[in-house]
């Protein structure tokens, strides 16, 4: 069943000098429980697209529907490039931010927060402040915060890009496992080809100025069952990597000419 569908989304930004088309005529649909990636150069409107899906921006044209309904803002989780944990709140308070805003902190929610923090390996720092944690730990806490409100759809805006390579690989595995376990539909924006292949079921390659879908790649079924780290080691990973690489390279040459 189609979970999320975008119908002919176009978005323009206006400034005093004129306007830029960030996205032009993007249509796609995502099945429930799927993991989808948007891959593209900077300026291809990736973040704009996520903001539109999250309901933070209203597109100039086109509609977004979730389960055939116009999207409602509250059941979407958003993970950003940096963790954006609130430095004046403890990890526990940060993780409970969603319920706090929605005004329904209960004992059950508190237990759930502890449980998620345990699963993610942060049970020892519940009462610490974000500044006392490493980058990887902070991004894990941000994942816990996102999962707390039990969103049906997860939007990941380059969440691993600010981390060092080793932490990034470890976190890819953790996020992938958590999202499978909680059966989330997820949308990842990235400029890392390997990450897109390792984590997703479908990869959309976008081209820049204006952003539109250039090509769609399906990740072969036997790679999807592996963890991201194992996928990166697999022989078929390289073939797909080469194909996507060529596609992106070609797009870049086209846009220069």
């Amino acid at each position: 069943m189609t979970f999320l569908s975008l119908n002919h989304i176009t978005h323009q930004y206006f400034s005093k000098q004129g306007f830029t088309k960030a996205i032009e005529d993007v249509s796609l649909s995502i099945e429930e429980g799927q993991f989808v990636s948007f891959l593209g150069p900077s300026g291809c409107g990736k973040t704009t697209l996520l903001s539109i899906i999250a309901g933070l921006l209203t597109p100039t044209e086109g509609t977004v529907t979730i389960q055939q309904q116009p999207r409602s803002q509250t059941n979407i989780g958003y993970m950003l490039q940096q963790d954006y944990l609130f430095p004046w709140k403890t990890i526990q308070e940060n993780v409970l931010l969603g319920p706090h805003i929605q005004g329904n902190i209960t004992e059950m929610k508190k237990e759930k927060a502890i449980q998620i923090l345990e699963e993610i390996g942060l049970e020892s720092v519940v009462k610490s402040y974000p500044s006392q944690l490493s980058g990887g730990m902070r991004q894990r806490a941000a994942l816990a915060r996102t999962l707390m409100t039990d969103p049906k759809l997860l939007l990941l805006d380059e969440p691993f890009s600010a981390l060092d390579y080793q932490t990034k690989l470890k976190l890819e595995n953790l996020v992938s496992q958590m999202l499978k376990q909680y059966r989330k539909t997820s949308l990842l924006v990235t400029h890392d080809i390997g990450e897109a292949i390792a984590m997703s079921d479908t990869v959309y390659v976008l081209k820049a100025r204006p952003g539109r879908i250039a090509k769609t790649f399906q990740v072969p079924g036997h790679l999807r069952t592996l963890t991201p780290f194992e996928t990166r080691q697999h022989a078929d990973f390289n073939d797909l990597f080469q194909t996507i690489w060529k596609e992106l390279d070609q797009l870049e040459t086209e846009s220069i000419n």
């Binding site: 999250a54 989780g77 958003y78 805003i101």
Partner: peptide
């Protein structure tokens, strides 16, 4: 982006100010 995080949880303007 702090505002973005809060809005993704459905925060209103007063909550954005306070939090």
């Amino acid at each position: 982006n702090y505002v973005k995080v809060l809005r993704s949880f459905g925060a209103n303007r007063f909550q954005i100010f306070k939090e």
